[in-house]
Amino acid sequence: MIIPELGPPKENIIVKANNLVKEFEGRRVLDNVSFEVKKGEVLVIMGGSGCGKSTTLRILIGLEKADEGNVWLFNENITAYDDKQFDAIRKRFGVLFQSGALFNSMTVGENVSLPLHQHTELDENVIQIIMRMKLEMVGLTGFEHLKPAEISGGMKKRVGLARAIALDPELVFYDEPSAGLDPVMSAVIDELILDLKKKMNITSVVVTHHMDSAFKIADKMVMLYQGRVLAYGTPDEIRNSDDPVVQQFISGSADGPIPYRTSRDLYLQTLAGIAEERIDTR
């Protein structure tokens, strides 16, 4: 497992997290999480439910603050940034949320053009052209007049992606892009992520627990387990890892180091971080 050096990132590193720690009501959900992403790379953060991957994402996009550790985005240490300081950085990245997070009161077109209206001085005609181009990129030409309630879940995610790339960001964060989608639609989203990397050299950080999708798109992977980095490396390194928990994840076995049956007490202890030794040493 390659562990990123402590301290500020090198020049071509777009995202760097150093020893992130986050606690909620005394429960440690992130424990010394470190990784880095090079320009144009796709980093996949994976792990089971409740392992801390969504919290990591929220810290990276500035919706949560880490209790300890540092985060660099575009070579700026954003750890202590308040909302106002973060605003300039936020214009340089896009986020695709799990549900798409489209505004239901607006049409598809208004959703995609919202960042353009708010952050650029472009003429309305130019905004309309860009909006149509972005929708075309995600394969939804002619959908601009529909409301989010009139399109399917997969289409909502694609519109969310069109909105995330509206300002031509250098970096896009994806929160569970294939969750709740059928295999075909899931493959479409994977292709879009790879397309953005190929055509626009966009750096991506993808949070997912879909193994097929993760191995298909990743240049580098971080596997989180109980708030800690269990494995970090290229897809091949992860695939060949001798860690039984990693192997259970890859094979999708119901029973293994992560037990099929668990008691309420053991679960509560796991949440509090007491039982991890017990599970790890099995």
Binding site: G94, F97, A101
Partner: peptide, 17 residues
């Protein structure tokens, strides 16, 4: 409902207060 559907997070992630 907007909070639950992550729409508020989406606004903040786009630098929109």
């Amino acid at each position: 409902t907007m909070v639950v559907a992550e729409e508020i997070d989406a606004l903040r992630s786009m630098s929109l207060h």
